[in-house]
Amino acid sequence: MSEFWSFITERYPDILLALRQHLTISFSAVILGTIVAVPIGILLVYNRVGWINSVVFFIANLFQTIPSLALLAILIPLLGIGVKPAILALLLYSLMPILRNTYDGFQSVDKGVLNSAKGMGYSAAQTILKIQLPLSLPYIMSGIRITTVYIISWATLASLIGAGGLGQLIVSGLGVNKPEMIFIGGIGAVVLALVADGLLGLLEGWLTRRYRQTRSAAV
């Protein structure tokens, strides 16, 4: 135990650096994945060509089936090593849960509510922003929360291509046989995932209340 606390005291700048790198990689991937997946999910709801939806979901699901190390290896010849290929790989992994939940959320909105909005003269954009988005927000946030937890876990592998993060502590600890480094890296990723999930849960509750208040005022 004394070695454990000594390591934290002596190497806390390195630990903070690894944590910052891990946060940067993970949340960059989740944010970019959300920016890409949510609009695509909404477009698929309004798409009337069935095979396009099937192709998009197939491609998004295909990324989920590629092993993490294999995907990183594929991206190295294209982007080299470091942060960029790590973020891109994690972004690709984030697409399916957010895309699926966005699509399912919009599909779950009661048709009667949509007909009422149409009868009141709402445009397609107004219906999306004021009706469908507030009602599907719990689905979307659930997808983002699940994705964030997974991405924080998978980001530990980014250290293998020189992107740093908490995984660097684990790899270095294995290399020099220092259990305290392995423990700090592993438990750090777990705590970070739990904290992120809790904060996103609070954000989900706040956004849901806010959007529903806006919808009530509009309708």
Rank of each mutant, 00 (worst) to 15 (best):
Y211G: 15
G167R: 00
V149Y: 05
G82W: 02
K118S: 11
F63C: 11
D197K: 11
T34R: 12
G162R: 04
L95Q: 08
Y122N: 04
I42V: 14
L95G: 08
V30F: 07
A86W: 00
Q64P: 02
G82T: 04
G82A: 11
G173N: 09
E180D: 15
R11W: 11
R11S: 14
Q21L: 13
S54V: 04
N115R: 15
A70K: 06
T147P: 06
G162L: 05
S2I: 07
I25L: 06
I152E: 04
T147K: 05
G185Y: 09
G33M: 09
I152C: 05
I31E: 07
L135I: 11
Q64M: 15
T147F: 13
I52C: 14
I161H: 08
G205C: 02
G112T: 05
K130H: 06
I42T: 04
I81G: 00
A60C: 08
Y139V: 00
P77E: 07
R20Y: 12
A124G: 01
I74E: 02
T9L: 15
L133M: 15
E3I: 01
S94M: 07
S159P: 06
D14H: 10
R100H: 10
S142V: 07
M96D: 06
L69T: 05
F58H: 14
L32K: 03
F183Y: 11
N61T: 06
V55F: 15
L200F: 04
L202M: 12
G121Q: 07
I87A: 13
P13S: 14
G167D: 01
F183S: 13
V83L: 10
